[in-house]
Design a protein around this nucleic acid. Sequence first.
DNA 1: ACTTGCATGTAAGTCGTTACATGATTGT
DNA 2: ACAATCATGTAACGACTTACATGCAAGT
Lengths: 190, 190
Amino acid sequence: MQDKILLGFLQDGEKTGYQIKKLMESSTGYFFNTSLGSIYPAFRKLEKDGMVKMKQKVTEGRVKKLYSVTEKGMECFQTWLNEEITIPKARDEVLLKIFFFSNLEPEKRREKIIFYVKQLQGMIDHLSTLKNLVEVNTSNRDEKKVNDYLNKYKIDAFRIEMLDYGVEYYIFMKKWYEDFLNRIDDVDKH
Amino acid sequence: MQDKILLGFLQDGEKTGYQIKKLMESSTGYFFNTSLGSIYPAFRKLEKDGMVKMKQKVTEGRVKKLYSVTEKGMECFQTWLNEEITIPKARDEVLLKIFFFSNLEPEKRREKIIFYVKQLQGMIDHLSTLKNLVEVNTSNRDEKKVNDYLNKYKIDAFRIEMLDYGVEYYIFMKKWYEDFLNRIDDVDKH
DNA sequence: ACTTGCATGTAAGTCGTTACATGATTGT
DNA sequence: ACAATCATGTAACGACTTACATGCAAGT
């Protein structure tokens, strides 16, 4: 999957590993983010397999390794995009803790959930801000400015959709945990 | 995390690795499920670290290795349960594909989403059935039967909550993807 | 006789992280 | 001068999966 995200980010032109890391942080960050320590070796492997080609370039005294996707890499990426999509495992540690919540004192349970709801609110705020930022920058009358903005951050309709999904997802979770808190409060009052 | 789920399942008595695998399939399965190939080595490590102790028992000609949690294991599990809970990364491959959806033909995009929505419905049906099964079995007048049932599958209020979360979670996703489908249909009509 | 389920285990491989290491440039 | 950011890389480690390997018991 690591390799697919790299090929994906190279679809609109050559980039360095560091650049991709920065793009990831500002876009896929909330659901997918990989460390530089796994990006660089991944690029080496992709190059070995003929999926990407590397071009060294010296800019402002710095040696940069620009990677671009090859024909073979394009095919590989398309194949992956075309594969049937299946439900992934949630692998959510929070759910696991709640599954074992009977082993924790009632007070502590409440504490944990209240703290978690606060964190979820923070995430909602953060993603909403990002989404608003995009909306403000794209509602400008100056079409050139809008396009420059969209291009700089590689934003398209689907990437905005992913921001929307993030907001809605965390709103759902927050609501569920708030209701859950009410339910366990009722139980504990007995 | 692997080790924590094992310690968690041992909280209500000694079990074999195989038993835990079965319990996982019928309870945490939809959000957490590990293979036997990682359960057995994990138990060995836990034993080496003094978290669990093993007792060999011969039942019906079969040699079983029953693990039980030690004092140290109890502490370790409690510490884990008490740690502040933080938002985990979603790491959802589906989101990643949609992020790169502009590289796929509009028709294929629709196909993928329609297929995914069907799968989500299947998941909703599956978890709803499980939840109903629990509800039917616990609405019995015979209290002994109810307790036997709850005990057999190690069900408590929180484990039922986790089933509820699963149902609600997949309903949320299904709705979002259905709305998403309508939105991309509108865009493609231009 | 055969398949399914119970029960355990190992080996190879994939995937990813953190920590360490280096060094240049840019802003304060 | 100093910190932050740009830019790349390696080593050690952790977590987990699949495939392989074994063997008994129970049901059909």
